[in-house]
């Protein structure tokens, strides 16, 4: 199954205007009344939770109403249709996509991906001994900064049975487990990407089932931190970060959001192919990050003591 990754997350939220403003401040671009996108066209749709056009919510009322995966071609859409039709209803929608429900109850869509190829450099660094990524006179940072999320990176679900969830995505959709936290859940990537994960599960009691967080890839660590810093300056509140994960190696900064889940900035994730053996670690703080930093308002040591008043 040549599934590339998540194209679109569709939300039904309590406060539509707050979510739209949050999406803009996060750095997404408004493409239509409901849609907010990253540079490659992947993104999120924001609707009122009562909007009748949405698929029914999970019994927990989680704000995530549908996860749409982008796939390589119509042949892949058809192959997924045939596979999932073996044991469940699969709808063909007017836009050519298909819709079905996974074994946990999450509504999924599959479509020929709407993502546009990106052709732009990563954040560049210079280091002694390595060829210069930024040549002479090319500066690395500026106070002038506009966050530009590049692509929808991953989504994380609370699920009541991670083994059942993992089996569905592995056996029915061809996802591959790259690493796992014992008794918590696997990091998974679909076969059409080398990203360490586009999906992660956290095993939780059934009443928590739903979205835990979602995130977009940034150009590098500096833009994760600059984007997060800008969110704090706008009055948004950090949940976790900035820091750097161990599994996936991605830099992270999570913010609470009006979406009913956390929204993360991430960058510089590991890539894996089929020559990788999944690692396993116990969950917890020590295995979740190599370091964790915390925001502080800008400050500088500067010269002599202040004048005596």
């Amino acid at each position: 199954m040549n599934i590339i990754g998540p194209d679109l997350l569709i939300f039904g939220v309590d406060d539509v205007e707050a979510c739209k403003q949050f999406a803009l401040d996060y750095g997404l671009t408004q493409a239509s009344e409901h849609r907010f996108v990253a540079l490659d066209g992947t993104g999120i749709d924001i609707y009122s939770k009562d909007d009748s056009c949405l698929p029914a919510p999970l019994e927990t009322g989680s704000s995530i109403r549908k996860t749409i995966y982008g796939v390589a071609d119509t042949a892949t859409v058809d192959a997924i249709y045939d596979e999932l039709s073996k044991d469940r209803e699969v709808k063909r929608l007017d836009d050519g996509s298909i819709e079905a429900v996974d074994d946990m109850g999450f509504v999924l869509g599959f479509q020929v991906t709407m993502r546009k190829p990106l052709d732009m450099p990563a954040e560049k660094i210079n280091a002694p001994g390595a060829p210069a990524q930024r040549p002479a006179n090319e500066t690395g940072v500026s106070k002038d900064f506009t966050p530009e999320p590049r692509t929808l990176s991953h989504v994380v679900y609370f699920v009541p049975d991670y083994k059942k969830a993992e089996a569905f995505y592995a056996e029915r959709l061809g996802f591959i487990t790259t690493d796992r936290f014992s008794h918590v859940g696997p990091f998974m990537r679909p076969a059409g990407t080398t990203d360490h994960h586009t999906l992660f599960f956290l095993n939780t009691p059934p009443h928590m089932k739903g979205i835990e967080h979602f995130t977009f890839h940034m150009s590098g660590p500096t833009t994760v931190v600059q984007a997060g810093n800008r969110m704090v300056e706008k009055g948004y509140q950090s949940f976790w970060g900035p820091g750097r994960h161990i599994f996936g190696s991605n830099w992270f900064w999570y913010f609470k959001s009006p979406f009913g889940c956390n929204m993360e900035f991430d960058a510089d994730m590991d890539l894996h192919d089929d020559n990788w053996d999944a690692r396993e670690a116990l969950p917890g703080a020590d295995n979740s990050q190599v370091f964790l930093l915390q925001y502080r308002e800008k400050w500088a040591p500067m010269g002599p003591p202040p004048p005596k008043g």
Binding site: Y236, Q237, C261
Partner: peptide, 19 residues
Amino acid sequence: WKKDVYLDAGGDYIVCAAH
């Protein structure tokens, strides 16, 4: 999720914005 915003849109409940 933002300073002072502890209530849902309808003002009925206190919300934790993390989950």
